[in-house]
Amino acid sequence: MAKKMGKRLMGICGVAVTAVYAAGYIYTMPSAQAAATSTSLPAASASAPSTPSTSTSNHAKHTAKQQSTSSTTRKSSQSTSTSTKNQATSTAKYKDGTYTGTGTNAYGTCSVAVTIQHGKIASVKITNYMMHYPQYYIDPQLPKEVVSMQTWQIYIVSGATASTYNFAEAVYYALKKAKA
């Protein structure tokens, strides 16, 4: 058994580790803030004008309830719709083709390929999934939901909120590219 380490040495080591951590934290602060800004969806709620899928005006506004996985999640400002499905009909027209998008947060990254046919979302495929939660939590449920609802604003999957946010963000960016 090794002899006990002196308290003074422990203190010095502890301070050294804290200093290295603080240096890293401070150095990465700009990139963390930039990432937080770039990954927050511009259209956080359905009422925002720049949403890729515009709800028809006679429909009730989405009751987009802000949901956060935790205070630590960078996507806390992002929301997805929890309103009823019939509110999500879309009149948006998209250019035909396949478009990709990526969503990222502290829990990982999700990329999708959205195929547009005749101006409508024909299929959504998850092309890259590097999240803390397994893919089967959201796949094929959420891709099917996007196709049926014709919007990126999908229901949050309980227990995989961060994955849902990332997926929604990825679809949002793909649809943004596809916008006519």
Partner: peptide, 26 residues
């Protein structure tokens, strides 16, 4: 922590799961 700082300084690693993430919660 030193390696994360090194990665950040020299822009090493992935575009996601960055040193900035590693040094922050969660």
């Amino acid at each position: 922590f030193a390696l994360m700082l090194f990665m950040a300084i020299f822009h090493l690693g992935l575009p996601y799961d960055t040193p900035a993430d590693a040094l922050r919660i969660p």
